[in-house]
Structure formats: C-alpha cells, structure tokens
C-alpha cells in the first residue's frame, strides 16, 4: 500500500458516495446514466468474486463489500426508488457495443484461462469504458450539474492515481500488470477532456459545466 493507491481508493470511495448522496438528497437521478451504474455494478461483481475464495486483508474485504453494496444501492435508487426521475430517453448508449467486445477481449487476452481470471480481466476492461454511457448522456443533453461533475472528477482521479501507484509498484516492488495498466491508461484518457473542462470552466460557472 502506497500513498497513491490509498488516495486512489479514497477518491473512488468519495465518487461513489457523492453520487449516492446526490441522488438520495435531491430524491432524483436526473442527469445520471443508469446504464453506467449497472456496468459498474457488473464490474464490481465480476472482479470481487475472490471475496468468496480468499482473504487478503480486512481493508481489502471491507472496501470491496462497500463498493459492491454502494453500486447496487445506486442501481436500486435509479431503477426502483426514483425511477420516475430517471431520464431514460437521454440514456441511449448501446451498452452491448461495450460488453460484447470487452467480453471477447477478456477471453482472448488474460493472465490465465480460468473462469475467475477471465471474469477479473473482463471487469478490468469493462471498468475502463463503463463511464461512456454517462459521458454520452452529458454530451447529448449538453450539461451536467456541478455535483455530477464532482462525481466524475473523483472517479477519473481515482484511476489516474492508480497509474502513479503502478509506477511506484514497478520501481519499488517490481510489480507489473500490463492488463491493468493498459486498461487504466484507456480509462484515464477518456476523462482527459472532462478534466480540462472541469478545471477551466468549473471555476467560472459554478452552476453547470457544459460539454461539447
């Protein structure tokens, strides 16, 4: 555990909690892509199957349980509790265009051809593109609430910090995982455009951040 890894995890946790609280307090999931949230729930479920087979640390187990729990709670709020506020017409990204190629890639390129490893690899690849329905929705409506941009910023920052964590681990532990690094790079790049807008436009107009 190094400082980048820890701040990355905390940034990820902050993003998840910001989104849950935003929906809960405003009693609305307007502007939030339910499809992205389902993808994240799938990501956590397929990656954390090792909860059933092995114990790594109390920190590891509790964070995994919190992430999974929050992901399903978010999906529940969007599709059940506040379903009336869900903007399905604007959430029109075709997720099969992500899930099918990512599934194929996980079967082709993985560390070990076993069910657990393929599902782990699938979750890594899927996470890297899971935010696309959300970004697509924002570009379609042309705006995002400030709190939604904070959520996206924390979520993007998390993987960027993980990149620094992997550089650290490579130098100090000789640890190198090309699958995670490649997917993490793709994931971070997808947020770059948003990072730029968040920093440049976020300060001037506190109400809303427009995306092209």
């Amino acid at each position: 555990m190094n400082v980048f890894r820890l701040t990355g995890d905390l940034s990820h946790l902050a993003a998840i909690i910001i989104l849950l609280l935003k929906i809960w307090k405003s009693r609305s999931c307007a502007g939030i892509s339910g499809k992205s949230q389902i993808l994240f729930a799938v990501v956590f479920t397929t990656r954390y199957l090792d909860l059933l087979t092995s114990f790594i640390s109390l920190y590891n187990t509790s964070m995994k349980l919190i992430y999974i729990g929050c992901a399903y709670a978010t999906v529940y709020l969007i599709y059940v509790k506040f379903r009336a506020t869900y903007d399905g017409n604007h959430d029109s990204f075709r997720v099969e265009f992500l899930v099918v190629p990512v599934g194929g890639l996980a079967v082709l390129i993985n560390h070990n051809f076993s069910l657990m490893e393929i599902l782990w690899t699938f979750s890594i690849y899927l996470e890297s593109v899971a935010i696309l329905p959300q970004l697509f929705m924002i570009s379609k409506t042309g705006e995002a609430e400030t709190i939604t941009t904070h959520y996206l910023f924390c979520l993007g920052l998390y993987r960027a910090l993980y990149l620094l964590n992997w550089i650290w681990r490579y130098y100090f532990e000789g640890f190198l995982d090309m699958i995670a690094i490649f997917a993490g790079l793709v994931q971070t790049v997808l947020y770059c455009d948003f990072f730029y807008l968040y920093v440049t436009k976020g300060g001037k107009d506190r109400k809303k951040v427009m995306l092209p």
Partner: peptide, 10 residues
Amino acid sequence: SQVPLRHDEL
C-alpha cells in the same frame, strides 16, 4: 487458495 498479487488492488 493462492491469489495473484494484483487481486490485492481494488
């Protein structure tokens, strides 16, 4: 069972 090191990460 033996878990790969990378599974330590979230």
